[in-house]
Design a protein around this nucleic acid. Sequence first.
DNA 1: CGCGGCTTTGATGTTCATCAAGTAAAGTGG
DNA 2: CCACTTTACTTGATGAACATCAAAGCCGCG
Lengths: 231, 231
Amino acid sequence: MKTSNDIINCRSCIYRNLLYDKLNDKEYGQVNSARTEYIYQRGELIKQEGDKIKSFLYLRVGLVKLFKTDHFGKDHILSINKPGDFISLLSIFSNSTYKYSISALEETHVCEVALPVLKNLVASNGAFALKVLNRMSHISDTIIENSFRINQKQVKGRIAHILLFLADKIYHGHTFRMPITRREVGELISMTTENTIRTLSEFKKDGIISMDGKTISILDYGRLVKVSKSG
Amino acid sequence: MKTSNDIINCRSCIYRNLLYDKLNDKEYGQVNSARTEYIYQRGELIKQEGDKIKSFLYLRVGLVKLFKTDHFGKDHILSINKPGDFISLLSIFSNSTYKYSISALEETHVCEVALPVLKNLVASNGAFALKVLNRMSHISDTIIENSFRINQKQVKGRIAHILLFLADKIYHGHTFRMPITRREVGELISMTTENTIRTLSEFKKDGIISMDGKTISILDYGRLVKVSKSG
DNA sequence: CGCGGCTTTGATGTTCATCAAGTAAAGTGG
DNA sequence: CCACTTTACTTGATGAACATCAAAGCCGCG
């Protein structure tokens, strides 16, 4: 991990209006001076379960996974997040330590704002507080909703679900390079690596997708949607 | 459902300090006059997925379940909540409609506070806003944490988990009357009714618990903990 | 060029859902 | 209050879905 040398401040950040548009100039200044931007490479751990929460994290560039490790040492991915997402909001107001780990799936830029500064702003600026509540609520809802959906499906439906997620939510296209390994796909949908691969191969054989290493093309989007829905 | 005739106001509510201790007299008055208390019987639906969110819900007395229905019509329980819990906080700031349903597991008293009043207080009172964030964060964390734990285990571990939950978190004792049917236990841990029953019978045969209809006694707490942990 | 992690396929066994069928308990209406 | 209906509970048998184990090819990287 290294500190970014960008002179970008929150005001010029393309994502600023997602959160900071309720702040006045002085408040902006506070955020900006309490802010550091860090760059992480693929595979780097950004935060580890148990780390002390000292700042509010905001994903500017890249892709990360939020995950927990069970007591067999097996990882379970809670969510994959993209630029603009809050990646620390879940526990920030209720816990002193992280309840999950965060690592980078590709080169990732993370903004850190010192927590006391953020809390002060919440306490002093009501519109800002509502905005934070709104976004925080949203990210939790998404994780819960997702886990609910995954839970109902069996392998084929789960794989279809995650392929659609990557195509629609992350890459906005039908051809993309998988940012995660097959094992990580398994961790995301609570399946073994082997069954994940088997199902992908089956989709390929059935002409629903094509695969070339990590690059995947969705050939029959409609059928994938149907598989995702039917289970 | 009927409206309570209790003259209890928030000030005398035994749970008020969980949330309202940051409010001054005038603010209290606002909450109190925007507040209605409703009583529901076992089985009654309090809110249904899709209902418009008009108020903030607070569980005063009783026991409820939060659940979602999948498109096969099968219910999945997200959490069981007890007095003092916020039961509407998840979606309240990010959605206009409920993303899940709530129903009463026993006679239940719910306080409803009109949402605009609550939002105004959040916007005008920073300490209160932080308190809401804190509690909100907590309930989401709990649901996510729970789903994570359940997901790792197989049937025996899951049944053990839910028995320990009821004993430790709800009834604070080793003997209790199950507030939920076997089917609902299944819905809570993503298992079929049949396998839930089979596992309970097995625990009984092994001397870990005793069962008399809905009344359950945990005979070997330590062993139950071990089963819960080992899977 | 060789080591370790990723990927892939096959064979085998376990876990659990499903189907079936019967008993017990709890409402419900005459 | 009793017959009737429905819902909850229980056990057994069967098969499907999936985990596990094993083995081998691949790829990137030091």
